[in-house]
Nucleic acid binder design. Sequence first.
DNA 1: TATTGTTATACTCTATAACTATA
DNA 2: TATAGTTATAGAGTATAACAATA
Lengths: 139, 139
Amino acid sequence: MALESLVGYNLKRAYVILQNDYRAVMGDHGLSPRVFSALTFVVETPNLTQSDLARRLGIERSGLVAIVDELEGRGYLCRVAVPQDRRVQALSPTDAGVQAYEAALKLVHDHEDRILHTLDAVERAQLLHLLKKIRETGE
Amino acid sequence: MALESLVGYNLKRAYVILQNDYRAVMGDHGLSPRVFSALTFVVETPNLTQSDLARRLGIERSGLVAIVDELEGRGYLCRVAVPQDRRVQALSPTDAGVQAYEAALKLVHDHEDRILHTLDAVERAQLLHLLKKIRETGE
DNA sequence: TATTGTTATACTCTATAACTATA
DNA sequence: TATAGTTATAGAGTATAACAATA
């Protein structure tokens, strides 16, 4: 079967498996992968703007609006006006946002530990390394 | 950055990079990844039914209809009635389908060789091996 | 002129539910 | 009853194009 030797096919299948398990662990009302990623950037990056965030996530600004709306609706961040440039909205995490991020990160770690239990520490590090090499190529 | 050590995040980013390059190589009227995968199974598996194919691709039967419609519309396969069980349609590749498959496979190989040029043969084999380990876990 | 955030819109991929015809 | 193929429908996720406010 020619597909078995294709990286793209195996990458997609593996990605779908991780994603399904992620959603099962996070639950119906949990943060989706992209919203969790966005929250991570907001919590870890001071003075992040929406355009910055879209660039880092590799999506369009227009697509980010709904993500930021959701995080704001959950009370996890605030859009803060920036006096120096009145076009931009800085994204500032709330205390609830930081707590939700930490709780979610713990769940994500548990999920990855479980779904990747057949990979030992060396294999997991190898996999991360190889995936990052692909990322470096494509950007 | 917590995301950098997450397999799921890096898996998705790498997958998006491969997918974008795939589409660039195959062109606007080329076979999409899922249609190419379906055609591969049809060409390589005699007497394949739609339910079989959906199961192997990991999607629902309902979602497969449009894929088979497209391949039939391109003249790459025929839905063949099976006398033994008149519920099923066997999927039989045409000569044009086999030729299109072979041409597409060549393009896909070129695409993967190019986008993965920073990985040597050993790394690529490692990556395939690790991705398959994840697939085995999740099925 | 260019950029930020935003809205409107459309497209792809996928799932669920219900139908029909067969078994 | 159960299965194969099908249709209708809806929900993510994402992209493009255009707009107002601001630089």
